[in-house]
Each structure stands twice: as C-alpha cells, then as structure tokens.
Design a binder for these strands. Structure first.
Lengths: 244, 244
DNA sequence: CGGGCTCTTGACACAAGTCAAATCGCGTGG
DNA sequence: CCACGCGATTTGACTTGTGTCAAGAGCCCG
C-alpha cells in the first residue's frame, strides 16, 4: 500500500501545528524512512532501551509510562497523532519511559541517525525539536501540578479537558464525543489515583451530568463546568507545537 | 570585578557535565553577555513573561514553580549551579513557570537572540540544548512518578537523595552535609504535601537517624536507608547533562 | 459453559489535610 | 536593653479524602 507523503500529511493542516515551509516538508520527506502499522498492545519503546527509530503517530492512540520495581506504573501522558516518540532515545543515551500502542496505530518512521543531519543542515527543524521538548516539559509540569494540588475530581476533569482540547485540535471530536480507548486503570495511573477511586470519581461526573466516558467514548456534557472543576479558564489559547 | 571566563568556568570540570571542545567553549564565551548577581528572593523569570535573557547559575540556589489561581504553588524543581534557565522562553512564546532565587546567586547571562545563532552555526550546541530539555523532561517525569505513587516518607527521601546526588556532583557536599537553603514550605510544595505533614515526616527521618535537615543544612546519616526509602538503587549511574 | 478482563459498589482503615496554638529566632523600634 | 511583631518550625487533636479489600455484574471469547 502506498504510504502517505509528507506533502499530503493529514496532520499538517491543523492550526495547532507550526507551519512548515515547502523546503522543510521536502526535508521531512527525505528524513522519513517508512510507515509502521502496529496492533493495540504493541510496545513501541522500552524504558532503558535505545530505539534506532523515532516515530510520529498519524493515527491511533498510545501511552507513555514508567514502571516501578513494585510493578505499578505511572502514566506520563497519552500519545495522540502528531506527538513525537523517541526524542529521549535520540539525544540521551536511552529512553526513560516506555511507549505502548493502546489502539492500532499508524506511525511515520524516522531514522535516528538522521537526527544529526537535522541539527547540521536544518537548524529550523532542530529548533523545532527543542521547542517540542519544551512543550513536553510544559505539559509534564502541568501534570505534576495537578497531581500535586488537586483532588480526584479536579484531576479527572483536567485530564478530560486536556484530552478533549487536543482531540478537537486534530478533528477527532464528533457530536458523539471523542474516542478515548484507554482503560480506567490507565487514567488512574496517569492521575496517581487508585482504580477504585477513579471509578467512583467517574461516576460522580456521570451523575452530575458533566461528562460520560463509556465504551471507549468520552462525551462532555458541560464543558464550562468541567473547566471550572479543572481550574482552567474556558478561553485558553491553544499551545502551538511543531510537527516532526 | 572581573567576570569568570567560560574557559575557567568552575563548573565545567565536574564529570556530570558533558565535555566541550575548545571551539565550543570559545563560542560559549562569545554567547555570554555578562554576569548577574542577585539577592535571595529575586524573581528571575515570571510565568507568562518572555525574558530576553537566559541564565546558567554559577553559584547559589533557586527554585522553579507554578502558581495557582488559589495562591498555592507547585515547585517543579530546585535550581542548582549548572542548570539552564529560560529555555522555554527561548523556544516557546513565554515561560510556563517562574524562577526565583532562594539564596544570593551568580548567573551567566546569555542573550536570547543568540539562541538562533547557536542553532545556525553550532549544531553541536543546539543538540546539547535539546539534550538538556530532554534531561529536564526526564526529571519532571520522575517527580510526577514520585508524587503519583509514593507516600510522604518516600517522597521526602527521594528528594533528599536527588538533591544530595546533584550537590555531590558539583562538589557542594562537605563532611557537615550540604547547604539546603529552602523552607519546609518549599519542599512541601515540591512534593505535593502539606507543610504540617512535611514537618512531621522530617521529624521521622530525624528520629530514625536517617537524615537531619536543620538551619539550611542537610546531613544524611544513612544513605543506604534513605535510598531504600526512596526506592532508588544505591548504585545508580549519574545522569549526564550538557552545560550551557 | 467457563475463564478472564473490565467495570462497579460497599465497608473499612489509614495517610494526609486542616485547624489551632505554642515555641523559637531575629530584627526593629521605643 | 527589652518589648514587640513577624516568619519559620513544631506539635497535638480532629476530619476527610483516598487506598485497600472483597465481591458481584457485565461482557467477550474459546
């Protein structure tokens, strides 16, 4: 099957992604070594390993997480189309977290060795890479703040708002809501809550008719109320990010 | 007073910092526009602002934090000599957190506009900048994991181990322990604990003769026990990081 | 039909938050 | 020189959010 050309990349058109010049698009095309389709459950990157490849998901969702000696996990964030996977492996010696596909995923594959070419010959793109790292840092900081200071309801609300915003930005929200293929355990691990407590919190949101998450589908009934619970302003300017 | 030349930078010699070529050191010298001394309490960067300057602390300590509408703070991490301040402002439109000096600090000052020169003419240094961002991301991920999964004692232990390691790496640990000029409230805000609970946890560490933090001085009595509580192996290879 | 996930719910325990007050330094001004 | 106020640290008593345990329900799949 024909793989998608960067020129026709389905993601580039969305306004959350920083505009690229034609020359940059052409370079990205040469940087791209292929396309990968994986099934749900596939581990894309392993904590401690050093992948020779870097990815940008085109379709599907996944998650990044760290594992503890005890067997518990901390989910760092949810991976959506347009994210970049493997930057740590590219610049540090090894990945500090794992990445797993939650659904079937289609990913652009880049060669890690080409990263250096980027820095040498395409400073604009290298700059974008740093920018991207800064964006990741920003969102991690947000999560840390949420887990550090908000109660269960607030954390869940915030996660829903963030996911919804991101999905909306890449046109993944329909009148029925958005596809959210994770398990309650995944959300619990992301928010530092127990599974049971997460479940009870979701029930509250359902009962108060604020948001319903069922059968992998998230439907927000009252965005204003959800934002209020998440301590987020309804009118936020979206975080712009580069697309690699 | 004569300012320190990069060539004689007191930090470069420490092994946690990535080695630089002479050419790179010379470039950093040209990148450096001055040296700044600030008093304790000075706000170096403001959340939402866009500083025209970037800093690398040479001496002194500070902290990065986010503020909530409620007035509470989340401390993201503690700033020690060799960190880099302002990368977000440099690549994103504005800072997403504030940075404050906790003690008197001496900082190398770089011009934000020179950042682009770095990307254009010194790809190795641009690479290091990305690397640095990845290191920050890594530590934030660690903090998130700690706050998400460990109890008070574990979090405090982990913070102490991390701070101690970092201080040791830049020769700030003496037989009396290390200088740790923060308030209990700062630590509490970093760990997502209340001040009262943090205080009681510190008392436990004192009573069990594991670590004593008093009068701005942290003395670790049993590093093995502290590591065990922090769920960290005693033999960890240090995280290498570039120096900007 | 049975086994294995995931999701739900209820009962109970406990870690951590909140409230309140005492103590200790320390700098300031009378 | 001492009284005072202020910030940081301690401590105790009480409350509560969240974790843990346990069991059942719904569902898919072999």
């Amino acid at each position: 099957m024909m793989q998608t050309e960067c020129r026709r990349c389905p993601l580039r058109k969305f306004p959350i992604f920083v505009k690229m010049t034609d020359r940059e698009v052409d370079f990205m095309q040469s940087f791209k070594v292929g396309e990968l389709k994986v099934d749900a459950g596939t581990t894309l990157m392993m904590e401690g390993s050093n992948s020779p490849q870097l990815y940008t998901p085109l379709r599907g969702m996944g998650l990044r997480y760290k594992t503890f000696e005890s067997g518990e996990r901390q989910v760092l964030n949810f991976v959506l189309p347009g994210d970049f996977i493997g930057l740590q492996a590219g610049v540090m010696h090894e990945m500090q977290h794992s990445v797993e596909a939650t659904t079937h995923m289609t990913l652009c594959v880049f060669d890690r060795k080409a990263l250096w070419t980027m820095f040498r010959d395409y400073p604009e793109r290298a700059f974008d890479l740093t920018w991207l790292a800064a964006v990741e840092e920003h969102f991690l900081g947000e999560s840390l703040a949420a887990v550090g200071h908000m109660d269960g309801l607030g954390r869940v609300a915030r996660a829903f708002v963030r996911l919804h915003d991101r999905a909306l930005a890449i046109d993944l929200v329909t009148k029925d809501g958005m596809h959210l293929p994770y398990k309650q355990q995944d959300l619990a691990d992301a928010l530092g809550l127990s599974l049971v407590h997460t479940n009870k919190t979701l029930k509250k949101l359902r009962e108060r008719e604020i948001a319903i998450w069922r059968d992998g589908q998230l439907k927000i009934l009252s965005y204003p109320k959800l934002c209020a619970m998440a301590e987020l302003s309804e009118a936020r300017e979206p975080v712009l990010r580069p697309l690699i």
